[in-house]
Amino acid sequence: MWEQVGQTLHESTLRVVSRIASILPGLVALIIAIFVAACIAWLVAVVLRRVLRAIDFDQRLETWGFQAMAEWSPAHSPTLLAARAAWWVIVLVGFVLGLSAFDATLSSQLAFNIFAYVPRLAFSIVIVLIGAVIARYLARHVLLAAVNMNLQYARVLSAGVRWMIMTLVITMALDHLEIAVGIVHLAFGILFGGIVLALSLAVGLGSKELVSRSLEREKDKPWQEAEEPFRHL
């Protein structure tokens, strides 16, 4: 009996070891793929960083109106952001290629799914980036207009505009990624509906008299009279 137990144990050990031995090349291949990808990524990142610095990319981006990119970038440098993004994309591609070294069917399916998801992810990132730039532009516009009209709550107004747009943009991005679509739709509807309702109530009930007085005053008093006797022209 002990002989049979020993043999069974030996066979199971052999099976486990052979299974591990069958995985090991794939694992080594994965590590090598990641290592090679990291080397290539490092090289690409270095070249990209040098090229972007040579063409003064950070300054040009500001000139083109993408000042917001600097805020989202490490060390306020969009060049660094681009270099790091390139590094991660190449390493990710290396990782996915390395996965293919495992079980052919399973890992290929996984790799296919991941690659199929990449365009959606990239497009969502673009949506968020463009949204962030637009949100920043409009928030700044509202802030300046409000301060120049001497509104005391200028910053709150500006922040409100920024977050309203960012909420809309993030919702669009999540919808595009098909992440919890139902919840996102519901939450967005509740949030936006709530904001509009709250504003309507606040203006309609709470500040009714204040708003009407203010509008009357503005209607009756042209801007140049508001600052008599100063004539700027």
């Binding site: 802030l143 300046l144 409000a146 301060v147 120049n148 001497n150 509104l151 005391q152 200028a154 910053r155 500006s158």
Partner: peptide, 10 residues
Amino acid sequence: ETFQNGTRNL
């Protein structure tokens, strides 16, 4: 007031 508002917010 507008100047002070600007100093606070801008």
